[in-house]
Design a protein around this nucleic acid. Structure first.
Length: 426
RNA sequence: GCGGGUAUAGCUCAGUUGGUUAGAGCGCAAGAUUGUGGCUCUUGAGGCCGAGGGUUCGAGACCCUCUACCCGCCCCA
């Protein structure tokens, strides 16, 4: 049997209402907050991610699906990559189409996207090789922290609307590239004397990304790590002021947060504000549902004009997993037909086809089977489909033009004409 | 890339120290009930017990190899 490849999965019709719910609420949030959709290709030139996301990141150096395109007679095949994230692509599109060109100073470009991303990691709960993200990017000349607070306010509304309540907002500032580099040096100097007391993983982290030692789960490492200097104590003055304003904007909106000076994002392009929302219900060890931050300078890195940027992405898969059980049940039921037609005999069958068409043209969701079954079986099928009504049609009904409309919840049944049925259901 | 676990019906799972025709619940089908669902009862269909090899008189079970999936580490959404 041919199966889905490792880390990919079919999202079956039974779960689709949950995905639609998350997408619908997200689109509604974006409409209210003035975001517009953009769709970029699922694969791009490898160089885009190498430069945009960062050559040294795990994503680029060990998780990308990269392949060489077919060569032409006059050139070698070029290296292409399935997108591991979407920010680099959106910024590329922003530059390529000069989306900034008709904007006045201070005017923002606010975009959102939704679609699959690809990373070649070992799958586990809440982690897939093809996964889905919904994200936004705010680009322009302004880096006002009020922008950041507003985006988080939108997320706050979004989560509440989905009844996902047990979450924590973590915020941090990773500073300007220069101050971050200086801090990293300070940190490494602080770690170096204690290096022999740290675990093997931490030795590796020390070499590649020293900030990561803060995340180590080994107890003996944590004991050392808790006394190390944190980035928020060595921010440049501008970043510190920016962070203070950001927090004030959140306070003014009544949005609760936890400062986590040890939170690091895995992509190179982040500057200053970084944030994360972690969920606590329905998730495995991978409990980050939203990750985002500021990426001033990414445009320049990709050959575009000086641009400030702020955005986030959330994992659709993880968001769906976070939906409370109580919500899930109702969402699944919403997919059911309004009316299930139960017919008896060939004449009624033929009549039912036209009736189904008329109802559908009037906007009613109609289910009909094509096999003439015993009424008891047909009624059971209607109940199984969770139809709101059964429409019963036999020879009598065809003759009189009055059909039996039975409410399957209450069991009440009345005899109605087509017009009466339509007006009742609309 | 590394570690742990699991693999038996469509689904969720039992299956004793190795012993006859491999079971349950749910689901599916038929009937009790010839024009009225959910509840109940009866009956039925549905299995190369993940693959290959080995031990044995005998393997779903024990051993080896492989594969797949799940969970975790790294890292991230």
């Amino acid at each position: 049997m041919i199966q889905t490849v490792r880390g990919t999965r079919d999202i079956l019709p039974g779960d689709m209402p949950l995905w639609h719910r998350v997408e619908d609420v997200a689109r509604e949030a974006f409409r209210r907050y003035g975001f517009h959709e953009i769709r970029t290709p699922i694969f791009e030139k490898t160089e885009l991610f190498a430069r945009g996301v960062g050559e040294a990141t795990d994503i680029v150096h060990k998780e990308m699906y990269t392949f060489v395109d077919r060569a032409r007679a006059d050139s070698e095949g070029e290296s292409l990559t399935l997108r591991p994230e979407n920010t680099a692509s959106v910024v590329r599109a922003y530059i390529q189409h000069k989306i900034f060109a008709d904007k006045s100073p201070g005017e923002l470009t606010k975009l959102y996207y939704i679609g699959p991303m690809f990373r070649r990691e070992r799958p586990q709960a809440g982690r897939y090789r093809q996964f889905y993200q919904i994200g936004v990017e705010v680009m322009g000349s302004s880096d006002d922290p009020a922008i950041e607070a507003e985006v988080i306010e939108m997320l706050d509304w979004f989560l509440k609307e989905l009844k996902i309540t047990n979450t924590t907002l973590l915020i941090n500032s990773v500073g300007e590239p220069a101050s971050r580099a200086a801090y990293l040096e300070t940190l490494r100097e602080a770690i170096r004397p204690k290096l022999d007391q740290l675990c093997a993983d931490c030795h590796h982290r020390f070499e590649t990304n020293a900030l990561r030692v803060f995340d180590c789960k080994v107890e003996s490492c944590q004991a050392i790590v808790k006394d190390l200097p944190v980035i928020t104590d060595s921010l440049d003055e501008a970043s510190r002021a920016h962070f203070e304003q950001f927090k004030a904007h959140l306070d003014a909106r009544g949005i609760a947060y936890t400062i986590n000076p040890r939170m690091v994002r895995g992509l190179d392009y982040y500057t200053r504000t970084a944030f994360e929302i972690i969920g606590h219900d329905g998730l495995g060890a991978q409990n980050t549902v939203v990750g985002g931050g500021r990426y001033d300078g990414l445009s320049e890195t990709l050959g575009g004009p000086p641009t400030k940027g702020f955005g986030f992405a959330f994992g659709l898969d993880r968001m769906v997993m976070s939906l409370p059980d109580g919500e899930v049940e109702g969402l699944r039921a919403a997919d059911a037909p309004d009316v299930f037609i139960v017919f008896l005999g060939e004449a009624a069958r033929q009549h039912s086809f036209n009736l189904a068409r008329d109802l559908r043209q009037a906007g009613v969701a109609v289910a009909i089977e094509f096999e003439d079954r015993k009424m008891k079986k047909a009624m059971a099928a209607a109940a199984k489909a969770k139809a709101r009504y059964a429409l019963i049609i036999g020879d009598n009904e065809v003759a009189t033009g009055k059909y039996g409309l039975k409410n399957l919840q209450t069991g009440e049944q009345e005899s109605l004409s087509l017009e009466e049925i339509i007006s009742k259901l609309n």
